[in-house]
Design a protein around this nucleic acid. Structure first.
Length: 862
RNA sequence: GCGGGCGUGGUGAAAUUGGUAAACACAAGGGACUUAAAAUCCCUCGGCUUCGGCCUUGCCGGUUCAAGUCCGGCCGCCCGCACCA
């Protein structure tokens, strides 16, 4: 660790330091006393809702939070200064697994653990000096919050937005719960990292697929979202246009429904394949005398292989010839074998395909393995000798070997087949989505109870509204794995609200992503008796600027978009899209250290020896410096924000977070970076402290000094950069301004220096709010920067009388000339041609052309 | 495999969207102040140079009066999705 700066050293102007500890506490109290950041609906003012993704109360804040909330606070304070009625709230995403893990490991109740963490993190966030309306604080684990979630669930059920069904689910064997598709990453649970298994369970689902098309189309309207996030969502929704074809089967009355996006390749079809979970597969295994034991065994084998997603990905493509054959729809007398194949997904399309090996790699692998025909039916143009060996061809070309399609391009052939199939009543055009309905049942205690009672006679009965909320029981134990609600007899066993007979509560709780799918709406009216107060929600929503990590590009951001639509349908909100503007920040990275034995080492335990040699402080093992990676406990490369804040102050931490790296990019935590920020805050403080006493009073004439141009250029520049989220450039411009102010002679240009110091104070207000208040007071003001309007640049000062014009000869730089601003071409030419370097470069040659871009460049061509 | 992004000094980066490449900072080196250190202040800081200049934004080519920026082709990293028919 660096030397801790001591406060209040010698009073010399060269060595005195900013006493940040006292100042930061003092100004935070002043903002509280002034109730500065309380948001009140006011239809006469333009509103601006700034929101950072709310934290999970894991224990302590980390650097990612500091960066996230600093950016949000800059936006909130800047917009306030620009006259907006700003809403900037904070809350806690407080349900979830870590609380239960803590309960199991530390024998502490999840609620107690969670609320203690919230207290710690609230205290830490307050140290940062954020302009938050704390009166709107919410925690999703509190019944005052989740009772409204239960109410909306019942409304959603009534509106047909929710259903219950049994189905295959992703089961996390470590967390002992179901995961949504979005929560399975590379075949493993997003939290536990354990390989996910397949289980069949009864689950509640949100009908997000009903909105697939709308969620896709509306992405175009989100013009203040990163292109990357919109693209990721579009890919996730995964729209595909194709054709459902109904194949006639030999010796069977029913038909085989197949979905394809390549109907043009129908003449190249050499087999059909169905999922092991397809009903037909089961029927064929059971039919006839004694059934088909080999097929039944194959299906069972697929089920066993398919217990983990990871296994599926590595599994070889295998099939089983059922002996059944289907008739080719366009070739009389041609039939195709029907296989059961392990790579066909029941959940997509119809769970059945036709295989065209020449134009699909999977089909080709399958055909080679089972000796099926490979007939190319799309041939690239100008390739007479085209054949398919081990690589399927999926590029453009003309149809061949395809009867009436021959010579067509792919699109025409698709249309032709679709038209004929539809005319014959043998299928129809169909749109399919990759997106699945959102399964929200979790077999966990620490979540919002699903307000349903299961009755043997009445089925799943909604809990009557009068009985809401269904509150989690406190008396639970975590000495056994599984869900304690399941074995809580008095909580679980209740009478059916419909018929009065004994019944049982649903013991599953909501996926915590449900909690975070509407919290932004609750912030508009956090104390309302209903989920939302429509007047408040209609005033504040949508969130104008949302800020958070890219890791939520799909999960949280897609769920919330769906939830907003569901709330609109049930009258709880009036719009479709929750977030008008989205900014995704980069991560905080730090160097990693490893011993020879491969163990990670904390930066504090590393000693630097000679040059680039590092050793472990205790063991003296050689330590190698690894590449910079995302700060994480497992890699032991974390820096605790509270240490930094207590050593350097919140403003220094905030300033460093905004400096150097563009906010969307990863930021490398460096010791020198934070000390640099600390030195700058002191330098600025000293500049003001050294001059405050002798400056002319507030409101004095700034005079006509040239220095004023730098002041107003800084206003214009910082304003532009903050609007565009270019915080690192704002920081650079403030540096430039302070450098310029340091050169002003207070004796001759005191008015200009006052204007400059006041301006820089207001400009850093959103970024280093405590220091800004301190300087403002020092400069003789008794108002708060937090209540002060943003400075306005004097346009007339931005235009310089003369400009330095770049001079080129045939595109090569030859020097610059100083000419009047907006000078005409003749003036510019005369000045340029008078330049010695220009005459030398021309060497008497005839000038053919002169290109002149006023105030920028002049290019002489010979 | 499919989709997307990125590549600029020792380092983080900037470049008014085609118009003086390297702003601002960090690190480094030199100096001042100091018994000394810290803090602070000043200077140097892309490369080569015969001191005239020449070269320089991953590599090759193109468009243009002019290319870090636009187009084509390579190379290298990073991210997302992935048996989706």
């Amino acid at each position: 660790m660096p030397t801790t700066p001591t406060e209040n050293d010698a009073p010399s102007h060269h060595t005195a330091r900013y006493a940040f500890k006292d100042a930061e506490a003092r100004w935070q109290a002043a903002w509280d006393d002034g109730n500065c950041f309380a948001a009140v609906e006011n239809p006469d003012l333009p509103k601006y809702y700034v929101l950072e993704m709310f934290p999970y109360p894991s224990g302590r804040i980390h650097m990612g939070h500091v960066r996230n909330y600093t950016m949000g606070d800059v936006v909130a304070r800047y917009k306030r200064a620009r006259g907006f009625n700003v809403l900037h709230p904070m809350g806690w995403d407080a349900f979830g697994m870590p609380a239960e893990n803590a309960a199991m490991e530390k024998k502490v109740h999840p609620a107690e653990w969670t609320y203690a963490n919230i207290d710690t993190m609230r205290r830490q966030l307050k140290l940062m000096g954020l302009s938050i309306d704390w009166s709107r604080e919410i925690a999703t684990c509190h019944p005052d919050y989740y009772r409204h979630e239960q109410k909306m669930f019942l409304d959603f059920v009534a509106a047909g937005l929710i259903y219950q069904r049994e189905g295959w689910v992703n089961w996390d064997p470590v967390d002992q719960t179901v995961l949504a598709n979005e929560q399975v990453i590379d075949g493993c649970g997003w939290r536990s990292g354990a390989p996910v298994e397949k289980r069949r369970l009864s689950q509640w689902f949100f009908r997000i697929t009903d909105y697939a098309q709308d969620l896709l189309d509306a992405l175009d309207s989100l013009d203040r979202w990163p292109e990357k996030v919109r693209l990721m969502q579009a890919n996730w929704i995964g729209r595909s246009e194709g054709l459902r074809i109904s194949f006639e089967m030999e010796n069977r009355e029913d038909r085989l429904e197949v979905y394809t996006t390549r109907p043009d390749t129908i003449f190249g079809a050499s087999f059909c394949a169905i999922s092991p979970e397809h009903p037909l597969a089961g029927e064929l295994a059971a039919e006839g005398e004694g059934g088909n034991p080999a097929l039944a065994a194959f299906i069972e084998e697929c089920g066993r292989l398919g217990t983990s997603e990871a296994a599926i990905e590595k599994a070889e493509k295998v099939g089983f010839d059922t002996g059944l054959r289907v008739k080719h729809p366009f070739i009389d007398g041609r039939t195709l074998p029907v296989y059961v194949a392990n790579f066909i997904l029941m959940e997509y399309g119809t769970g059945a395909i036709f295989g065209c090996p020449a134009h699909d790699q999977r089909d080709l692998d399958f055909a080679r393995k089972y000796g099926l025909d490979v007939l190319p039916v799309v041939v690239p143009e100008d390739d007479a000798a085209f054949t398919v060996e081990n690589e399927a061809y999926s590029g453009p070309g003309k149809l061949a070997n395809s009867a009436f399609l021959d010579g067509m391009d792919i699109d025409a052939a698709k249309a032709e087949i679709a038209g004929r199939i539809e005319a014959a009543g043998a299928g129809k055009r169909e749109v399919n989505f990759r997106l699945r309905d959102w399964g929200i049942s979790r077999q966990r205690y620490w979540g919002c109870p699903i307000p349903i009672i299961h009755c043997a006679d009445c089925g799943g009965v909604p809990v009557p509204e009068a009985d809401l909320p269904v509150v989690l029981p406190d008396d639970v134990s975590f000495d056994r794995p599984g869900n304690p609600l399941d074995r809580h007899e008095t909580w679980k066993n209740v009478d059916c609200p419909s018929c009065g007979k004994p019944a049982t509560r649903e013991t599953d709780t909501f996926d915590t992503f449900v909690d975070s799918s509407w919290y932004f709406a609750r912030f508009a009216s956090p104390h309302a008796d209903t989920p939302t107060d429509r007047a408040a929600a209609d005033y504040w929503l949508p969130v104008d600027q949302y800020i958070g990590g890219i890791e939520h590009a799909i999960l949280h951001l897609l769920y919330s978009r769906f939830f907003m639509r569901a709330m609109k349908k049930t009258g709880h909100a009036g719009m479709d899209e929750p977030f008008a503007g989205l900014f995704t920040q980069g991560m905080i990275c730090h160097e990693t250290y490893k011993t020879e034995s491969g163990a990670w080492v904390e930066p504090a335990d590393v000693l630097q020896g000679h040059g680039d040699n590092f050793v472990h402080a205790e063991t003296r093992e050689t330590v190698t410096v690894g590449r910079s990676e995302k700060m994480s406990k497992s890699k032991k490369n974390v820096i605790d924000p509270e240490d930094i804040i207590s050593t350097y102050g919140a403003d220094t931490a905030r300033w460093f977070m905004l400096s150097d790296s563009p906010p969307e990019r990863d930021l490398d935590w460096t010791e020198s970076g934070i000390t640099g920020a600390w030195r700058f805050s002191n330098r600025l403080w000293r500049l003001a402290a050294a001059n405050a006493a002798t400056l002319p009073p507030p409101g004095s004439d700034p005079g006509t000094s040239d220095a004023r141009r730098a002041v107003h250029a800084a206003i214009a520049g910082v304003t532009e950069d903050l609007e565009a989220f270019h915080f690192n450039r704002s920081v650079a411009r403030v540096h430039e301004l302070v450098n310029a102010l340091s050169d002003i002679d207070p004796a001759t240009d005191g008015g200009a220096l006052r204007e400059g110091l006041e301006t820089v104070t207001l400009l850093i207000g959103p970024m280093m709010p405590h220091l800004a208040e301190e300087l403002w007071r020092m400069l003789g003001h008794d108002t708060l920067v937090a209540d002060s309007p943003w400075p306005v640049a004097d346009e007339s000062l931005l235009v310089q009388d003369t400009v330095k014009l770049a001079v080129q000869v045939r595109g090569k730089m030859r020097g610059t000339v100083e000419i009047p601003h907006d000078a005409d071409q003749a003036t510019a030419e005369k000045a340029a041609l008078a330049l010695a370097t220009v005459t030398a470069a021309l060497d008497g040659a005839e000038i053919k052309k002169i290109i002149y871009v006023p105030n920028r460049i002049i290019n002489v061509i010979h």
